[in-house]
Write a protein that binds this DNA or RNA. Structure first.
Length: 519
RNA sequence: GGUCCCUUCGUCUAUCGGUUAGGACGAGAGAUUUUCAUUCUCUAAAGAGGAGUUCGACUCUCCUAGGGACUACCA
């Protein structure tokens, strides 16, 4: 019979959640949902020195925003707690003792300073079977001496006693069989007396076992220590219930070599964190996807496709539900994925277009407010309707001018300013103005404005019904010049729509102003 | 340095021994257009290199090269 699938996402609260961590969590979520299993949220805070206040709350809020729901864990409840490792001291102590008792681990008194000195002295020094008998530990010291040192309050660590010369197999769901010889592993520190806490490796294995985790889905950076974890399961006698492993490929820099870092985001102008983060120590602010104007569905969709894709089963636009349906761990790619932030923007564009126009109002309203403009929701929805398919210019990482679709509500401002603010001056060097404002244009516009003044129903339909025949009869092509008057540049929506939005009075006023300015 | 992982268009990827090597982002061209666009259509663009195995290799094996990760009393 199959055990219920249980997976976990276990970050350490040392800062904001990196976007790569978000993807790891997402894959865990998809896997859990797909198998009707549980997703556990565990906090791995065994390094008291690296604790950052607010990080845990940040992580929880991030997942809330993204729509990734946990079934149990810190802040979610559950009967396998506590889920914060710093609250599980007694549990770890007990299991460390088990290893000590069955000879799989030993106590070592070498201080960090002594080890540093040793590493300087001996090149490639490793604390393992070949060296441990030269060190100060319970293997070399008399039992009374060990007891005495502990009683005198000397700090010590517990090390895992690794037997050399054995090929350790890890059966990875993504990579297949990975074999590492135990001789290259060092006697890892499992527990430190200084803060009475275990290190990652011990806590991880004990918790995964006690929490009945069935699948460990994590980043590739853990692959080298996976054999160590296998050995630990064996040492505890838990080999038969050991979880299956799946090591995900890493997220790489968009340009150049190496893994994705915060600096890349700063340089190229995209966030590497889900939410904006204010560092409590340095006061530094790191941008977040949410604040940048990304929709959570877009972030999820984009991230899911970095390292996995549904093949021919489905196109790339997928809701969370569809992702759950099509996701397949065994179809994850093995190689690292460069972070394509341009495609991320494209996804956002797609999801933005899917939204009803009113849904843009909160974000767009904020943008307008920054410019000192207030508009009603219906006005904003109108503008969005007319302008959301436009394109905006931007500067890419290499400093090249490029164009891309409107991907964020904030993109709208430079393109929609004229809806709310009349042109104040006209650039005579502007190609569009030059081309469309010539001798006689002013007279033409004057005539046109007189006709417009007589329009009875100032709506798109009304304008069309009255002006179209008139333009036809007069043999005029007033559109571009009219655009110059109302917009001041060669952009904007259909002229009737613009005029209807501005209203008769504003329209005529702008025309009058343009005529006097341009002559 | 050592160990392990990886290698298909610029990017993300499909292919699970037999295909004109497919799609998406990006790029280019054309059509449409009341400006800029959108949209639509089309185009260019790839199996790192070398040995094998096989009737046949992008797919399996090995070597080389390149990339990545790990190598803490951090996770």
């Amino acid at each position: 019979m199959d055990k219920k699938v249980r997976v976990r996402f276990a970050p350490s609260p040392t800062g904001p959640l990196h976007i790569g961590g978000v993807r790891t969590a997402l894959y865990n979520y998809l896997f859990a949902r797909q198998h009707g299993g549980d997703l556990i949220f565990r906090i791995e805070d065994t390094d008291s020195t690296r604790f950052v206040p607010g990080a845990e709350e940040y992580i929880i809020e991030s997942f809330k925003w993204l729509g990734i729901q946990f079934d149990e864990g810190v802040s979610f409840g559950g009967d396998h707690g506590p889920y914060r490792q710093s609250e599980r001291r007694d549990i770890y102590k007990k299991y460390v003792q088990v290893l000590l008792d069955n000879g799989k681990a030993y106590i070592a008194f070498d201080t960090p300073e002594e080890l540093d000195a040793k590493r300087k002295e001996v090149e490639n020094f490793q604390y393992d079977a070949s060296t441990r008998l030269q060190m100060r530990n319970s293997l070399t010291l008399a039992p009374e001496e060990v007891t005495r040192l502990i009683e005198e309050g000397h700090q010590y660590v517990v090390r895992f006693r690794i037997e050399p010369g054995r090929d350790v197999e890890v059966d990875d769901l993504i990579r297949g069989k990975v074999v590492i010889n135990s001789s290259i592993l060092d006697d890892k520190v499992l527990y430190k007396s200084a803060d009475e806490l275990p290190t990652y490796h011990l806590a991880n294995i004990v918790d995964d076992h006690l929490m009945e985790v069935t699948h460990v889905i994590r980043g590739e950076e853990w692959l080298p220590s996976a054999p160590l974890h296998v050995l630990l399961y064996e040492a505890f006698g838990w080999a038969d219930t050991m979880p299956r492993f799946a090591h995900l490929p890493l997220l790489l820099k968009p340009i150049g070599n190496g893994k994705l870092s915060k600096r890349d985001g700063d340089k190229l102008g995209f966030p590497v964190f889900p939410l904006e983060w204010h560092d409590p120590k340095s006061g530094e602010v790191s941008s977040g996807y949410r604040e940048k104007g990304y929709l959570p569905q877009a972030v999820v969709n984009f991230l899911a496709l970095l390292g996995w894709n549904p093949g021919e089963a489905h196109d790339e636009m997928m809701t969370l539900e569809e992702l759950v349906q099509y996701f397949d761990l065994s179809k994850c790619s093995k190689n690292g994925a460069k972070f394509d932030y341009v495609k991320a923007a494209w996804f956002n564009h797609q999801y933005l277009l899917q939204q009803p126009d009113e849904a843009w109002a909160p974000a767009y309203g904020k943008v307008l407010a920054e410019q000192g403009i207030t508009a009603s929701v219906s006005q904003m929805a109108e503008v969005v309707r007319m302008m959301k398919t436009k394109v905006i210019e931007y500067v890419d990482g290499q400093g090249n001018k490029k164009k891309r679709n409107i991907s964020f509500a904030s993109d709208l401002w430079p393109l929609t300013k004229f809806f709310f603010v009349a042109p104040e001056a006209f650039d005579l060097e502007d190609k569009f103005i030059k081309k469309n404002w010539k001798e006689g244009t002013a007279d033409e516009m004057t005539r046109f404005s007189q006709r417009l003044a007589a329009v009875e129903t100032w709506t798109v339909e009304g304008l069309k019904a009255e002006i179209d025949p008139w333009v036809e009869a007069e043999q005029l092509r007033p559109w571009n010049a009219w655009r110059v008057c109302l917009v001041g540049a060669g952009q904007g929506p259909d002229m009737y729509e613009l005029a209807a939005f501005l209203g008769k009075e504003e329209t005529l006023q702008r025309m009058k102003f343009a005529i006097t300015q341009l002559g």
